[in-house]
Amino acid sequence: EPIEAIAKFDYVGRSARELSFKKGASLLLYHRASEDWWEGRHNGIDGLVPHQYIVVQD
């Protein structure tokens, strides 16, 4: 079951695997890939989301 998150800041992906998004964007998170990253989805694209840039919705 994906988790919803909201972007705290704009983020520009630094590689093809990283998602880019704007502050306030809604993201879906699948699972924690590491301490710093989530596997997630934004605008229909799957990729990595940096933990420091999002607020996970409970």
Rank of each mutant, 00 (worst) to 15 (best):
G47L: 00
W37Q: 07
R32T: 03
V12W: 05
E39W: 07
K23Q: 15
D10C: 06
V56I: 10
A7E: 00
N43W: 05
G40R: 00
G44A: 12
R41V: 15
K23G: 08
D36W: 08
F21R: 00
S20W: 05
E4Q: 12
L28F: 13
E4A: 10
P50F: 06
Y53F: 13
L48P: 02
G47T: 01
L19C: 07
S15G: 14
S34C: 09
E35P: 09
Y53K: 14
S34P: 02
E39Y: 07
V12Y: 08
F21A: 00
R41L: 09
H51N: 15
W37T: 04
A25N: 08
K22T: 12
P2K: 15
V12I: 06
D46S: 10
A16S: 08
H42R: 09
D58V: 06
K22V: 11
V49L: 10
A33R: 14
S26M: 13
A7M: 01
G44W: 04
E18Q: 12
V49P: 00
S26R: 12
P50S: 09
S26C: 10
A33H: 08
V12P: 06
A25W: 06
L28V: 13
A5R: 02
E35Y: 05
D10S: 12
Y30C: 10
D36E: 14
S34E: 06
Y30F: 11
V56A: 15
S26Y: 09
R32S: 04
E4K: 11
Q52V: 06
P2W: 15
S34D: 14
Y11R: 06
V49W: 00
E4M: 13
Y30D: 05
S34K: 10
D46H: 09
E35M: 13
L29P: 00
P50M: 07
V12G: 10
E4Y: 10
L48Y: 10
V12D: 15
P2G: 15
R41H: 02
H51W: 05
S34I: 04
I3Y: 03
Y30Q: 09
R32W: 04
R14A: 10
K22A: 13
G44L: 06
H51Q: 15
D58P: 15
R14M: 09
F21S: 01
D46E: 05
S20T: 12
P50W: 03
S20M: 03
G47C: 02
V49C: 05
E35K: 15
L29F: 00
D46M: 15
P50R: 13
I3S: 04
S15M: 14
L27F: 05
E39F: 05
I3C: 02
E35S: 12
S34N: 13
A25V: 07
Y11A: 02
R41N: 15
I3R: 05
E35Q: 08
Q52A: 12
F9E: 14
P50Q: 05
L28T: 13
S20N: 04
D46Q: 11
Q52T: 09
N43C: 04
L29R: 00
D10Y: 04
Y30M: 10
E39P: 01
A5Q: 01
G47R: 01
A33D: 12
A7L: 01
Y11L: 02
E1F: 15
A33I: 04
F9M: 14
D10R: 04
E18R: 04
S15C: 06
E35A: 11
F9H: 06
L29S: 00
H31G: 11
Y53I: 05
G44S: 12
L28D: 14
P50E: 03
R17M: 07
F9S: 15
F9N: 06
I45H: 10
L48K: 11
S34R: 12
E35L: 08
W37I: 07
H42P: 00
L27I: 12
A16W: 07
R41F: 15
W37S: 04
L19H: 08
Y53R: 12
N43P: 01
D46L: 10
A25Y: 11
Y53Q: 14
A33T: 05
Y30S: 12
N43D: 15
H51Y: 05
R14W: 04
S34A: 07
H31M: 10
S26P: 12
F9Q: 14
A7I: 03
E35V: 13
A5D: 00
K23A: 11
D46Y: 08
A33N: 09
F9W: 08
A7S: 07
F21W: 01
G47N: 01
S15V: 08
L29G: 01
E4G: 07
K8T: 12
H42Q: 12
G13Y: 01
E18L: 03
P50D: 04
D36M: 15
V55F: 06
G24K: 08
R32K: 13
F21K: 01
Y11P: 00
H31V: 12
G24P: 02
G44D: 15
E39T: 09
A25T: 13
P2A: 15
P50N: 10
R17L: 09
I3T: 10
F21Q: 00
D36T: 11
H51M: 04
I45M: 09
I3K: 11
N43Y: 03
D10M: 06
F9T: 13
E1S: 09
G44V: 04
A5L: 01
D36Q: 14
E39L: 08
L19E: 01
A33F: 10
S20L: 01
G24T: 04
R32F: 03
G44T: 09
A16H: 09
L19T: 03
Y30H: 06
D36C: 07
D58T: 04
H51V: 06
S26H: 13
I45V: 13
I45Y: 03
G13I: 02
L28G: 08
Y30N: 08
D58I: 03
I54G: 02
G24C: 06
R32A: 06
I6S: 11
E18P: 03
W37P: 01
Y11H: 09
G40P: 01
G47F: 01
L19S: 02
D46K: 09
G44Q: 13
D10W: 02
P50C: 11
Q52Y: 12
E1A: 05
L27M: 12
R41E: 03
S34H: 05
K23T: 10
K22S: 13
I54R: 00
R14S: 04
L27K: 01
E35G: 11
K23S: 13
V12T: 11
Y11W: 04
G24F: 06
G47D: 00
E1K: 04
E39A: 08
A33L: 14
L29T: 01
S20C: 06
A7C: 05
I6G: 04
P50H: 11
D36K: 11
F9D: 14
N43Q: 15
H31R: 13
D46G: 10
K8N: 08
K22E: 14
L48S: 07
A7W: 00
F21G: 00
K23W: 03
Y53S: 12
Y11K: 02
E4R: 06
K22G: 09
I3P: 03
V12R: 12
D36Y: 04
G13H: 04
L27D: 00
N43I: 03
H51A: 15
N43G: 07
V12S: 11
P50A: 12
P2F: 15
Q52W: 08
E39S: 08
I6Q: 14
F9Y: 05
Q52S: 10
E4H: 15
G24R: 05
K22Q: 05
N43K: 09
A7T: 02
G40S: 05
R41D: 15
K22N: 10
D36R: 09
R14L: 08
P50L: 08
S26W: 09
W37L: 09
Q52M: 14
G13P: 09
Y11E: 00
G44N: 11
L29M: 05
V12Q: 14
Y30V: 12
R14D: 09
I3E: 07
S20Q: 05
N43A: 09
Y53L: 13
